[in-house]
Every structure is written in C-alpha cells, then in structure tokens.
Amino acid sequence: MDIKDIKTHYIDYVLQNSKRPESIYLFMKNIGGEEKTFYEHYTTFYDLEAAIWSDTFKDTIEKIQQEQVYEGYTVREKILSFYFTLIENLKAVRSFATYSFKNQKDFPLDGGVLKESKQTFHDFVSQLITEGVYTGEIADRTFLTERYAGAIWWETVFIIRFWIYDSSKNFERTDAAIEKSVNLAFDLLGKNIADATFDFIKFLFSKN
C-alpha cells in the first residue's frame, strides 16, 4: 500500500460518506492496511487532505506546461490557463473539494488544507513574476515586487472559494470570475496610475 492508494481510498471515503473517517485506525483497517503505514507519511487526515490539494496544483502546473501553446503565452495568459485547468481538475473531485474546503480549521489564506498548495503555487508564480518583470508586463516596484506572489495567492483562494459556492450552469460564472479577476490583477501589477501618482508625490517632497 503506497501513498497513492491511501489518497485514492481517502477521496473515495469522503465522496461516499461526506465526512472524514472516524479514526485513522478504522480507515486503514477498512482499506486493508496498517495504521503505522499512514503515520509514515501523515500525522492527521488534515495533512492528507492538504497533500491531495497540493497534488492537484502540481498536476495542473505540469499539464499546462506540457501544452504546446503555453510557451507562447504572455504571463497573464499563463496564469489564466493555470486557473482554468485547476478548476477543470478540481471538477473531477468536486464533492471532496467542497467538503474539505468548507471544513478546514484555519483560514485558507494562512494555511488550512491549502497550506502545501500555497508553497507549490508560490514557486510556480514567482517564476512567472520574474518573467513578467523582464517582459515589462509587470511593473517592478521597490518593496512591493516581493509581495506580488502573496497577492496572487490571495486571488487563487478567492477563485477556489468562488467555484465552491458557484451554482451556475457548467460553472460559467467561475470562468467569468477567473477572466475578470486576472485582468484586474494584471492591470494593477502593470504600470498604472498609482505609479505616476507616487512618482509625482515623490517629486513634490524631494525639492532641493
């Protein structure tokens, strides 16, 4: 019994019972394994869920990077394609995702079931930000640039939450939410009115 089996069985359990198993012992026994196998990898069901979410993030990144068009995309398009694919992947286990997301201990911005995914995403998006600064899509701002990844993570949590509570046909409203929030984010990240304002104010206060 390897990690993958445990994960598959666990998702299955939550999908069928709409709750977490009573205990790790019972869960492992039911799937024909031993409790200690579980502890070799995780301490709680919660950690296991976080790993499952993180897998989905990793799969998504791998999948979009394999697409032929991906290389030719702008940074904005790369992020869009990440979100669309992420939601597509999550759809396959929607009931599990909904249960897990709604029943987490911590606020997902700081951790919760997305704590591992946050790191995965951070690595992915930091690279994109560097790329964006290089191509000029993203403005390089003192002190702020290093916070961009955090801001985009916030957007990611927003999108997942939006999808969890979305009741439109085919989740079309989530598609629209992705499109619009990414466009907004990139308008903010690119050179905009704030830069000109800041520059002007700096000028006013720095008279010799």
Binding site: Q68, V69, Y73, E77, F84, T85, N170, D175, I178, E179
Partner: peptide, 20 residues
C-alpha cells in the same frame, strides 16, 4: 476580446480537445 486560455477551456469543455 476575451483571452485565449478561455477559448481553449471552452473547447475542452465541449470537445475534450483544444482548438489546435
């Protein structure tokens, strides 16, 4: 216009394939 990734996504939804 709307973004190309969304076009790809719409194709995926209805045909299971991307435009290309």
């Amino acid at each position: 216009p709307l973004s190309y990734p969304l076009v790809v996504k719409t194709f995926q939804t209805y045909f299971g394939k991307s435009p290309t």
